[in-house]
Amino acid sequence: MTGRFDLFAATRWVPWLFTGLVLFFLAAPLFVVVPAAFNNSSLLQFPPRAWSLRWFHQYFDNPSWIEATLMSVKVGICVSLLATLLGLASAVGLARYRLFGRNLLRALVMAPLLVPVIVIAVGLYELFLRLGINGSFAAIVIGHTLVTFPYATVVIGAALAEIDPRLENAAVGLGARRPRAFLEVTLPLIRPGLVVAALFGFLISFDEVVLAIFLTSPATMTLPRRLWDGIRFELNPTIAAVSTMLIVLSTVVMLLSEVLRRVLARRSGLPAGQGR
């Protein structure tokens, strides 16, 4: 009799059932907003009795939603560029830096991600109020750059670590000046890393709420700030329509970053999913 082993074989589905339940808990609630977005009634009902696109029309016809979306795109592009440039300089600097306090410098780059955002938010809020620039476009771009460029530094640093430094040195040995060798040899090799850093920068900025609550004014209101006000004070299904569109967007970005990750892995000569 191998009853004991049969028992284990018979209970092998238990961990899978548990896993399935956790994954259901994670993903399923997101899709509840989809029927709410197409529901004709302004009251919440399951299942909706009549379908309509009126909440999407509400979004597109309401200047405050559209302006907030455009503002988020504008802020996101500026943050993405700024964070990628700062991240590139810092990553190359950290990779080449050989003097004292290297670990301290690395920790300092990551520090803005480790401190609760609310603490950074009130600190910047106060600094910007004293400087008289709170609520300006620059204020929110600076705030978002602070919490995105550490990611950019890590992502670009990882891309730099994947390539052979002797390639750039070979170019220098063949007579190229260091900046040209960097631009023509190293930079093309880490391009996928730069793209991922820029994409991350945009996405984090496009999603960020807490800094936006403190640092934006009605003139610089971003989409998450508009959503925050909407959820707290209106709670009509327009929010479900906006949410549906953003869930579609995050799905697309997720698939895109997966494709990029595979490209990055292939460039470095490793099969997908086997990067360091």
């Binding site: 300089a89 950290l94 080449r96 830096y97 003097l99 780059v109 803005p112 950074i120 106060e126 602070l146």
Partner: peptide, 30 residues
């Protein structure tokens, strides 16, 4: 090499000093 690296590190750390260490320091001081 460290000298050139220092120059590259300058913008990032100036940014962190101005917009992270100063605001957090301001809050603690207050």
């Amino acid at each position: 090499a460290g000298y050139g690296a220092g120059l590259l590190l300058l913008p990032g750390f100036a940014f962190i000093l101005l917009f992270f260490l100063v605001p957090v320091g301001l809050i603690l001081a207050q």
